[in-house]
Amino acid sequence: MAFIEVNNLTHIYGKGTEQEFCALKDVSFTIEEGEFVAILGANGSGKSTLARHLNGLLQPTEGECMINGLDTKKPEDIWAIRRQVGMVFQNPDNQLIAGVVEDDVAFGPENLGMEPEKIRQQVTEALRAVGMEEFRKFAPHLLSGGQKQRAAIAGALAMDTRCLILDESTAMLDPQGRREVMGTVEHLHEERGLTLICITHFMEEAAKADKILVMEKGQLVQQGRPQEIFADAPRLHKLGLDVPLAVELAWNLRKDGLSLPQDILRNDDLVAALEACYVH
């Protein structure tokens, strides 16, 4: 059984009203425990709606969404699901609840009714995992964007989350903050086998994933390894998406007759391939 199983998921906002809007149409996929999945798609393609189904913030209109064998439709399972699937949102200012970092990280465990001693332990561990121990007593408004997002990640970790959804969590950050946040979650993914689901517009982030899902107008139009997805650059351009710089450059070089391997994703890959071309 896969960790996340989405079967024929359809979601309609405002069903039965005049503003009825079908945000997701017959979407099916699975995500294994410990996988790193990126979800791509233009604005309004249903990425965030999809993400909100994965921890029961939204319920499917049709179809089902199973998290570790639990159904998001069952109200009695919802807290167990939210505990396992943590979420980090886009705006770093709007998701920290308390006026001090450690109190904010403790918010989740407090809601779960953990013992005070256990909560302190969880908070310390979570802050250490994201490298924010020294900011324990800080007020959120004194932190940088990247630090705020790391505090939000710690908030999820303190609940013993097994899967982290980043809903465009790096979109409002500067390059430094983006590196901080991605570095932190990649580290957690490698060290702890944390399942990562990353909604993003930054193709360099998506290129590091094990699997990419491409959304368009509420439908899942393509899924596969990054190499497969990025192989068809013009198709992605048509969907309003970019490809990583190295992929784009390799694609253009190939068009001009240079024989480069198909699986170039990162700058390093391209440099190695070009060296191989010219040294031999």
């Binding site: 998701q95 609840i97 918010f107 465990p109 013992e115």
Partner: peptide, 20 residues
């Protein structure tokens, strides 16, 4: 946004809540 974030972190009112 905040309401959504609180819900995602299992907030369900004061019932059964502990304090650090």
């Amino acid at each position: 946004d905040l309401a959504l974030a609180m819900e995602a972190r299992c907030y369900r009112g004061g019932e059964g809540r502990t304090r650090m």
